[in-house]
C-alpha cells in the first residue's frame, strides 16, 4: 500500500480567513510530489472527529465572532485532541487557531475558552498588530516569513517560540518572540498563507507526521527555487541585512 498522511482540516467553513486553503494545498502537493498519498478531511462543527485516523491537524483563523462559535464546540473534542498532541501528532494552528491552542483569549465581549493544549494565553490589546513579519528560529535553516494581523497579545511562558522577530510584532509586540513550538505543534500568527513561502516549515510538519506514523521520514528534496526566491524577496525587503 502506498504511504501517505491523513490531514484533518478543522472547521474550514468558519476558520478560513487568511488563505488557509493555501496551507492545505501546500501540505498536499508536497506529499504528492514525493509520491505519498494525501487525504484531506474537512470537518464541520457537527462532525465527529476521530483523531486516531489523523496524522496532521490544521486549525485556521477566523473572526472573533466565528471563534466564539467554534470555542463552544471545542469542549467536546478537547480530550481527544489533547491525547493526539501528547502522542506527538502534528498540528499547525494559525492566528485564531493559535489562540485557541491556549487556555483562553480574553476579549472585550468576554472570555473565549481555549483547548489548553499548550500552556499559553491571549489577551486583547490595541491597536491591532498588522504587518509583514520576518522571523528566524534555531530549528529552521531559512528565515520564516508571513503576514500578521491580530488584536490578541499571546504569552507563551516557558514554551519555546517558533522564532525571534526580525521584522514585525510577533506574539505580543513586546518580547520579540513569534509563535510556539510544543511537541509537534506549530502555533503562529503568521499567515500569507504560511507554508507556500516557507517550504521548510511545511516539510518540518510532514516529517514529524511521517516519523510518527512510519517510524522514519525520508523527504526527498524538491526544486524549491520559486519558494526560496519568494521567501528571500520578503526577507530582503523588510529585514534587509537583519536576518
Amino acid at each position: 500500500m502506498k504511504k501517505g498522511l491523513t490531514i484533518g482540516h478543522l472547521y474550514p467553513d468558519l476558520l478560513n480567513l487568511y488563505g488557509d486553503r493555501g496551507n492545505i494545498q501546500c501540505l498536499r502537493k508536497r506529499l504528492e510530489w514525493r509520491g505519498y498519498e494525501a487525504d484531506v478531511l474537512e470537518f464541520t462543527l457537527d462532525d465527529k472527529i476521530d483523531f486516531n485516523r489523523l496524522d496532521l491537524v490544521l486549525l485556521g483563523g477566523g473572526s472573533d465572532r466565528e471563534q466564539m462559535i467554534v470555542c463552544k464546540k471545542l469542549r467536546d473534542i478537547r480530550k481527544d485532541f489533547s491525547a493526539f498532541v501528547e502522542d506527538g501528532g502534528a498540528v499547525l494552528a494559525v492566528c485564531g487557531g493559535y489562540q485557541l491552542l491556549g487556555h483562553y483569549y480574553d476579549t472585550q465581549e468576554g472570555r473565549i475558552e481555549g483547548l489548553s493544549l499548550v500552556d499559553l494565553y491571549t489577551e486583547q490589546g490595541s491597536p491591532r498588530l498588522i504587518s509583514n513579519e520576518v522571523i528566524i528560529g534555531p530549528d529552521f535553516s531559512m528565515p520564516i516569513v508571513g503576514f500578521e494581523n491580530h488584536g490578541g497579545r499571546t504569552f507563551i511562558g516557558e514554551n519555546r517560540p517558533l522564532g525571534q522577530v526580525k521584522f514585525g510584532f510577533g506574539n505580543n509586540g513586546q518580547d520579540g518572540q513569534e509563535g510556539v513550538l510544543y511537541r509537534n505543534v506549530v502555533g503562529t500568527y503568521l499567515h500569507g498563507p504560511l507554508l507556500p513561502k516557507n517550504p521548510h516549515v511545511c516539510d518540518y510538519l510532514l516529517s514529524r507526521a511521517l516519523e510518527r506514523k512510519y517510524g522514519e521520514a525520508s523527504l526527498e528534496p524538491l526544486d524549491d527555487t520559486q519558494e526560496e526566491e519568494a521567501n528571500r524577496s520578503i526577507v530582503k525587503r523588510f529585514a534587509g541585512g537583519n536576518a
Binding site: 478560513n16 487568511y18 488563505g19 488557509d20 486553503r21 493555501g22 494545498q25 498588522i130 509583514n132 503576514f147 494581523n149 499567515h191 500569507g192 498563507p193 507556500p196
Partner: peptide, 9 residues
C-alpha cells in the same frame, strides 16, 4: 491591501 493571502482564496 498589504496582505496578499487572499490570492489563495
Amino acid at each position: 491591501g498589504t496582505d496578499v493571502s487572499w490570492l489563495w482564496d
